[in-house]
Write a protein that binds this DNA or RNA. Structure first.
Lengths: 249, 249
DNA sequence: TGAATAGTGTCTATAAGACAATATCCC
DNA sequence: GGGATATTGTCTTATAGACACTATTCA
C-alpha cells in the first residue's frame, strides 16, 4: 500500500482498541515428511497433556503475537522436531469451530520435507520423537484422511484433525511432484536417478516407467551430474546427480 | 480423533483459560474474480475508514469466534459482494506481523469465481462496488503483486497486502486451470468452446492453439453438448456446451 | 453471394512406453 | 565368469501443433 498515512490516520491507529471483539487462537502444525525404505513417513510426538492425551500429534505451537507464521514454523521445527534449514511450504488453514476442544483455534498447517538421514538423526536424539509410517488409503489425488502406523503396522491414533492435515499433505505432494522441484528435498545432496525415482514412486503411490522418468529428469534441467558415482554397491554403480537449486528462498 | 474423552480430560477442558496469551485477530479476504472482454477482473470496495482510507480493498471481514472460515467467506460474499452460491477455494494465509497497522491480523485469503453476468448485476446493484481490471505484470507462474486499474487504465491503489493476494490468486488460477475444472466457473451455464478458450487465454495471459484446445476439452469428458446452438450471431452458430459438474461440494 | 466463424480431416513433430543390447561394478 | 543394475539405442504409440478444407449462419 503506497498511500501515505495522514496525521489523522496515525491518530486513529493509536486509539484503535483491538480487544473489542473476542479473538481465536492461531497455531501452526507442521507435517515433517520423509521417504525411507519406499514408505512415506512423518515425525509424530506423543501428547502428554490434555486434550487428546495419549494420542500422537504433529509438531505444532501457538503463534506468538509478534511472530510471523514462518517464524513460528521455524521455531517448532527447531525445538520440537530437531531440524533446521529444511524446505517448508504452507499447506492449508483449518478453521472448523470445534477442531480443538480447548478453545477456538485456527490452525495454519505447513509441510516440511527432509532427507531421511537428517530426520533419523533427529529422531535418535530424542526418545519422544517417533518416525511414523503413513498409510494412504486412496489413489492419486482423491484425498481424505491418512493414518499413521509404527514399524509393525500398529496404528498410532492421531490427535485433533491431524489425520486430515496429513491427507492434504500427501495430496499436495502428489499434485506438485510433477512440476515442482520437491523430490530433491527428500534426498541427500547427491543421489542416483534410481533413488529419485523411488522417491517419486513412494510419494505418488504407484510405479513409474523407468525410461521415461530418466529422460524427463535429465531433460528437465533441474539436476546435473556430480561426476561421481555410487560406491560399494554390488552392481554397476550409478552416476550421482545433484539438484541444480535455483536458489532456495 | 477417536479416543474417548475421560472425566479427567473433560475437567481439564472445562477449566482451560484461553485468555492467558494475547491472540491475533483473524480475517478472511476474498478475491472475487471474473473474465469480461478478455480481461481478468475483480470486485473492489472503497475503504471509507482508516486505515488505508481512500484505497481499494477486497471484500473481507473479521472471523466470528463461533464462525468457520467458510461461513465467514459466504457471509462476506453475500453482504459485501452481493453474490451467493459461487465457487470458492482457500488460497493462502498471510501472516506478516505488520500487514494491518491496527493490530495483528492473520488474513486467510480465498478466491471466488463467478460468471461476468452475475458479477455485473452485483456491481450494478451497489454504487460502492467496482469491477476493476487486473493488470498482471508477469508471465506464466512467475508470481508477484498484481495491480488494479479502472476501465480507462487509471490505477486503483490497493489497501493492505491486497496486491499480493491478487498476485497469488492469478498464479493459482494459472496453475490449476489445466487440470482442475475452474474455467467453467467463469462462464454462464451454457457456453461455446470459443468462449471457454477465451476464458483460458485470459487467465493464462497468452493465446492457445485452437485445435488442440478443442480436442482436449471434448476428450476431457468434463463438458457435454447441450444440443442447442448460439443464436443471433453473424456467422455459423457454435454448439453450446455445459459443464458436467461432478457435483459441487 | 459474401463475410465471418464453426467444425473436420490430415500431416508432422514431439514426448512417452516398451524392449533389446551393452556397460560396469562386486563377488 | 556370474549376478545385478546402469545406461544407451531403437521402435512403437499417443498427443500437440499446423494447416487446409468444408459447413452454416446472417446481412
Amino acid at each position: 500500500m503506497s498511500i501515505e498515512r495522514s496525521p489523522e490516520e496515525m491518530a486513529f491507529l493509536a486509539s484503535y482498541d483491538a480487544s473489542r471483539f473476542p479473538r481465536p487462537s492461531v497455531a501452526v502444525d507442521v507435517a515433517l515428511v520423509t521417504v525411507l525404505e519406499g514408505r512415506l513417513r512423518c515425525l509424530l510426538l506423543p501428547r502428554t497433556e490434555h486434550p487428546d492425551k495419549g494420542a500422537w500429534a504433529l509438531p505444532g505451537t501457538f503463534v506468538g503475537i509478534d511472530e510471523s507464521l514462518e517464524d513460528a514454523v521455524e521455531r517448532v521445527l527447531a525445538t520440537k522436531a530437531g531440524v533446521e534449514d529444511v524446505f517448508t511450504e504452507q499447506l492449508f488453514t483449518f478453521g472448523a469451530v470445534d477442531r480443538d476442544p480447548r478453545t477456538r483455534v485456527i490452525g495454519v498447517a505447513y509441510y516440511a520435507l527432509v532427507d531421511h538421514a537428517r530426520l533419523a538423526a533427529a529422531v535418535a536424539a530424542d526418545d519422544a520423537r517417533t518416525l511414523a509410517v503413513l498409510d494412504v488409503p486412496w489413489d492419486d489425488l482423491e484425498g481424505g484422511p491418512v493414518s499413521a502406523v509404527d514399524e509393525q503396522g500398529v496404528a498410532l491414533p492421531l490427535a485433533f484433525d491431524h489425520a486430515a492435515i496429513l491427507g492434504v499433505t500427501v495430496a499436495r505432494l502428489r499434485g506438485k511432484l510433477d512440476y515442482a522441484p520437491i523430490g530433491f528435498e527428500l534426498l541427500p545432496e547427491a543421489f542416483t536417478l534410481r533413488q529419485l525415482q523411488t522417491v517419486h514412486e513412494t510419494v505418488l503411490g504407484h510405479p513409474l516407467n523407468k525410461d521415461s522418468f530418466r529422460r524427463r529428469m535429465v531433460a528437465g534441467g533441474l539436476i546435473e551430474p556430480t561426476g561421481r558415482r555410487e560406491e560399494n554397491v554390488l552392481h554397476r554403480p550409478a552416476a550421482l546427480y545433484r539438484f541444480t537449486r535455483p536458489s532456495r528462498d
